[in-house]
Design a protein around this nucleic acid. Structure first.
Length: 574
RNA sequence: GGUGGGGUAGCUCAGCUGGUUAGAGCGCAGGACUCAUAAUCCUGAGGUCGUGAGUUCAAGUCUCACUCUCACUACCA
């Protein structure tokens, strides 16, 4: 048993996330957390809403709400959406919590003491009409390169050129459209990432268990030379910048830390908030290597856009403090889920968001499809047709039908009781050896976080059940030798239990229905096979005479009509 | 522009450090079975591995060029 700390990238507060966000961090982290718990590990899965920054202020403004109230509301909405999808966080916190504020301020002071933070002056566009400084992307104007009129301050969408907002011709605020903007000098704290570059490179190179995607992104940034990064912004909503006495730092009135400085710190803050709920809980044993966290394995999940922050910026914060903080051991970075090959778009009604998804299909459907087609090596295109095919084939036909056929048969021929009798023969030897190969393989895939392969292996195990029934053919034996029909039925029922157990990390709702129907006590729903012999024993583990029931149809099929209706309302391919 | 992915059966994808007839699922065709959600099981057809060169006894796998596509590019998060 090991201690595994799991975090998934923090969902931003300005709206319910779409399926791509879910598939790229929260869901795989959850499946991994559930799998590791099943294997008997001590798991702590932490997530939180990322609540600071300009978009939060603007979203609140658009709804006519106070930012703080808006965040309260959206935090609850995201929490609810997560609960619907069965995301099994040990704690779902908030980056706006007092704990994160204090930690952020403490880190900044320590980093400054260590000479890694310094104050510099930069130029920033200020909009008088909006009464705020504008982040680069909120300044628009005419591209100096191609004369395109809708260029954003960071990049021109027309010619692709990278821009500096102060170079835009006729700049205006993207928020209000006001042209009453000017460039002002503003002072900010800079994190001297460059000073940590060598140390960071050594650490990255020593990393094990990072996918190529993450490793190459991290090394690329290091090779280009890490730039010092401003970690404060001209905003009012966020973590205020304080001095050693806890007063607002001079010259930093109306400024707060940049969200990307405090967001990862919220992993720690949320753990503190988790611990504060129960006296026995100890956050330091997860985060401080001098307080018991030296044997923790820390695994992070994120989309590829977050890699640089997790492999470079956050480690600079932790390492630069000189304090014994737990650094990430393994991480999993995902590509994007695309919508018929294109991007998700709220305005064009393209794509599905977490709150809408619940009205379309049960949580298990989404969980299975998104994991079986996880964007691991590449961006993965979501289509309704593929969704329908995956669900109908894998869940309804392979798993659902298997459970249905054997439980109904038991109810019909054996009075709903696990039958006794019969001698194990070729078919039983076959399925035993099949599982003795496949189950360890499945576990290996989970441990290496290869989700597509883990799903394919799970499906192959379910399919082997159907093949076993064909070989054992209890319905044929029943006519001449009821005992021989009994063993086929009994093995079939044991397979149902096993299939329910391995389904738990992915499709927890259906798994619970299966295990309930089989009358399996919760204590026996774990994944302790005890090696190859354990698997053999498990295939005949159910007590004879145990009452079982045939569950209702586990997975209703998705019809063509459903697909057309969804395509229409959600802007699928036309 | 720079950097990194990717381009393998109709579709979605596996193929690690180069080595017998290139794999899986879906779809398709034929057969078997009838316990089951018109489900399942078996068999089969289908690919000159983006293009062109090169290295090698041997390349989907290494090198170079070209081409298409996606992402990232530090003040959106």
């Amino acid at each position: 048993m090991s201690k595994i700390l799991i975090t998934s990238a923090l969902p931003y507060i300005n709206g319910v996330k779409h399926l791509g966000n879910l598939a790229g961090s929260m869901l795989p982290a959850d499946v991994y957390a559930r799998a590791m718990r099943l294997l008997g590990h001590d798991v702590l899965y932490i997530c939180a809403t990322d609540e600071h920054g300009t978009p939060a202020e603007l979203a609140a403004q658009a709804e006519g709400m106070d930012v703080s109230d808006y965040c309260d509301k959206m935090h609850e909405a995201q929490k609810k959406a997560g609960a619907y999808f069965g995301l099994s966080y040990d704690y779902f916190g908030r980056s706006s919590s007092a704990a994160t504020h204090k930690l952020t301020q403490a880190f900044a002071l320590t980093l400054e003491t260590n000479g890694l933070i310094e104050e510099r002056v930069s130029q920033q566009v200020y909009s008088k009409a909006d009464q705020r400084y504008l982040p680069d992307r909120y300044v628009e104007g005419t591209c100096p390169g191609c004369d395109f009129e809708g260029a954003r301050g960071d990049q021109c969408d027309n010619c692709g050129k990278l821009l500096d907002p102060i170079d835009l011709i006729n700049p205006y605020s993207a928020i209000s459209g006001s042209k009453d903007v000017e460039v002002r000098d503003t002072n900010h704290l800079y994190l001297k990432q460059s000073a940590m570059s060598d140390k960071l490179r050594d650490w990255v190179k020593a990393a094990d268990g990072w996918p190529p995607l993450a490793m190459s992104i991290a090394l690329k940034w290091l090779d280009e030379g890490l730039r010092d990064r401003a970690i404060t912004r001209d905003l009012s909503w966020g973590v205020s910048v304080v001095d050693a006495d806890g007063n607002i730092r001079e010259g930093f009135e109306g400024k707060v830390f940049y969200v990307w400085f405090d967001a990862p710190i919220a992993y720690i803050g949320a753990t503190q908030d988790w611990a504060a709920q129960v006296p026995e809980r100890d956050w330091e044993s997860w985060w401080r290597t001098d307080k018991g966290a030296d044997d923790v394995r820390y695994v992070q999940f994120m989309g590829k856009d977050n890699v640089a922050f997790h492999t470079l910026s956050f480690p600079v914060t932790l390492m630069g403090s000189g304090e014994p903080w737990k650094l990430v051991d393994q991480l999993k970075a995902f590509n994007w889920v695309t919508w018929y090959g294109g991007k998700f778009s709220t305005s064009q009604k393209r794509g599905v968001f977490m709150d809408q998804a619940r009205e379309i299909a049960p949580s298990d459907y989404w969980r299975w499809h998104l994991m079986a087609n996880a964007p691991e090596g590449n961006d993965a295109a979501f289509t309704w047709e593929e969704f329908q095919a995956t669900i109908n084939s894998d869940l309804a036909n392979v798993l659902g039908n298997f459970v249905n056929r054997i439980t109904k048969y038991t109810v019909g021929k054996f009075d709903g009781k696990v039958p006794d009798g019969g001698v194990a023969g070729e078919a039983e030897a076959w399925i035993t050896s099949e599982l003795q190969t496949r189950i360890p393989q499945l576990i290996a895939y989970y441990e290496s976080r290869e989700f597509r392969k883990a799903m394919a292996e799970t499906r192959a195990i379910w399919a082997a059940g159907n093949e076993y029934l064909t070989q054992a053919a209890p319905w044929t034996h029943y006519k001449t030798d009821v005992d021989q029909a009994a063993i086929g039925t009994r093995y079939g029922l044991n397979l149902v239990v096993l299939f329910g157990i391995i389904a738990q990390p992915i499709i927890p709702d259906a798994a619970a229905k299966i295990l309930d129907a089989m009358n399996i006590p919760h204590a026996n729903r774990s994944w302790n096979f005890g090696g190859r012999e354990g698997i053999a024993a498990l295939l005949d583990a159910l007590p004879r005479g145990l009452n079982i029931t045939a569950p209702d149809v586990l997975f209703t099929k998705i019809e063509d009509d459903d697909v057309s209706a969804w395509s229409q309302s959600f802007g699928g391919q036309t």
